[in-house]
Amino acid sequence: MKATFQVPSITCNHCVDKIEKFVGEIEGVSFIDVSVEKKSVVVEFDAPATQDLIKEALLDAGQEVV
């Protein structure tokens, strides 16, 4: 499964690193693409990962998800 999250609070590479760390810890996540320019995060994943778990990880990383 693939999901795109709009994350307007992404401003720098530190944000990218933190997002990759938090989302990458979720079992089932196979790909993460964070774009500072587009302020988006694209995640490819399989169970047990879910969109809700990914959104929670983004929030835990200090990001706003819309």
Rank of each mutant, 00 (worst) to 15 (best):
M1T: 08
M1Y: 10
M1I: 08
M1K: 11
K2E: 05
K2C: 13
K2L: 08
K2D: 02
K2A: 06
K2Y: 08
A3E: 06
A3W: 12
A3K: 06
A3G: 06
A3N: 05
A3C: 12
T4S: 07
T4P: 04
T4W: 14
T4E: 10
F5D: 01
Q6G: 08
Q6T: 10
Q6P: 02
V7I: 09
V7Q: 00
V7P: 00
V7K: 00
P8K: 11
P8V: 11
P8Q: 08
P8C: 10
P8S: 10
P8T: 09
S9Q: 06
S9M: 08
S9C: 12
S9G: 09
S9R: 05
S9D: 06
I10P: 00
I10A: 04
I10Y: 03
T11P: 10
T11H: 15
T11A: 08
T11S: 10
T11G: 07
T11M: 15
T11F: 15
T11N: 08
C12G: 14
C12F: 10
C12N: 13
C12K: 09
C12V: 07
C12Y: 11
N13G: 14
N13M: 14
N13W: 12
H14K: 15
H14A: 15
H14W: 11
H14Y: 12
H14C: 12
H14V: 15
C15F: 08
C15Q: 12
C15W: 11
C15V: 11
D17Q: 13
D17Y: 13
D17V: 15
D17K: 13
D17W: 14
D17L: 13
D17S: 12
K18T: 09
K18R: 10
K18A: 09
K18L: 12
I19G: 01
I19M: 03
E20A: 11
E20S: 12
E20Q: 14
E20W: 14
E20N: 15
E20F: 15
K21S: 07
K21C: 05
K21R: 11
K21W: 08
K21N: 06
K21A: 08
F22L: 11
F22I: 11
F22R: 09
F22E: 03
F22D: 01
V23H: 02
G24V: 05
G24Q: 07
G24L: 10
G24D: 02
E25T: 09
E25M: 14
E25R: 15
E25Q: 14
E25W: 09
E25I: 11
E25K: 15
E25D: 11
I26A: 03
I26S: 01
I26K: 03
I26E: 00
E27Y: 07
E27R: 10
E27G: 06
E27M: 10
E27C: 06
G28K: 02
G28S: 02
G28C: 04
V29I: 06
V29G: 00
V29M: 02
V29R: 00
V29D: 00
S30H: 11
S30L: 12
S30W: 11
S30R: 13
S30G: 06
S30C: 08
F31Y: 12
F31T: 08
I32M: 05
I32N: 01
I32S: 01
I32W: 04
D33N: 11
D33Y: 15
D33T: 12
D33V: 12
D33E: 13
D33P: 03
V34Q: 02
V34D: 01
V34F: 06
V34M: 04
V34N: 01
S35T: 04
S35F: 06
S35Y: 05
S35R: 06
S35H: 06
S35K: 05
V36I: 13
V36F: 08
V36R: 04
V36N: 03
V36P: 05
E37G: 06
E37T: 10
E37M: 08
E37Y: 09
E37D: 09
E37K: 09
K38P: 02
K38R: 12
K38V: 05
K38F: 14
K38L: 11
K38W: 12
K38E: 09
K38Q: 08
K38D: 09
K39P: 02
K39Q: 09
S40M: 14
S40K: 11
S40W: 12
S40L: 14
S40E: 13
V41Y: 04
V41N: 00
V41I: 08
V41E: 01
V42K: 07
V42Y: 15
V42E: 07
V42L: 10
V42S: 09
V43T: 00
V43F: 03
V43Q: 02
V43S: 00
V43Y: 03
V43I: 06
E44H: 14
E44T: 13
E44D: 06
E44G: 12
E44C: 15
F45T: 00
F45P: 00
F45M: 00
F45H: 00
F45S: 01
F45V: 00
D46W: 11
D46I: 13
D46E: 11
D46C: 11
A47Q: 07
A47I: 08
P48K: 01
A49T: 02
A49W: 04
A49N: 02
A49M: 00
A49E: 01
T50S: 06
T50Q: 01
T50V: 03
T50A: 02
T50R: 04
Q51W: 15
Q51A: 14
Q51G: 07
Q51M: 15
Q51L: 15
Q51I: 15
D52F: 11
D52W: 12
D52G: 08
L53P: 01
L53F: 05
L53S: 08
L53W: 05
L53V: 07
L53D: 05
L53T: 07
L53R: 13
I54D: 01
I54E: 02
I54H: 00
I54N: 03
K55W: 14
K55D: 01
K55C: 09
K55H: 11
K55R: 14
K55T: 07
K55Q: 08
K55A: 07
E56V: 10
E56Y: 10
E56F: 11
A57T: 04
A57H: 02
A57P: 00
A57F: 04
A57M: 04
A57W: 04
A57Q: 03
L58Y: 00
L58S: 03
L58E: 03
L58Q: 01
L58I: 13
L58W: 02
L58V: 03
L58G: 01
L58R: 01
L59E: 09
L59W: 09
L59D: 04
L59C: 06
L59S: 06
D60T: 11
D60Y: 12
A61S: 06
A61C: 14
A61M: 07
A61F: 07
A61I: 07
G62M: 13
G62H: 05
G62W: 11
G62F: 13
G62Y: 11
G62V: 12
Q63C: 15
Q63I: 14
Q63A: 08
Q63V: 13
E64Q: 12
E64D: 10
E64T: 15
E64S: 10
E64W: 13
V65M: 08
V65I: 09
V65D: 05
V65A: 06
V66A: 10
V66F: 08
V66I: 12
V66W: 07
V66R: 09
V66T: 10
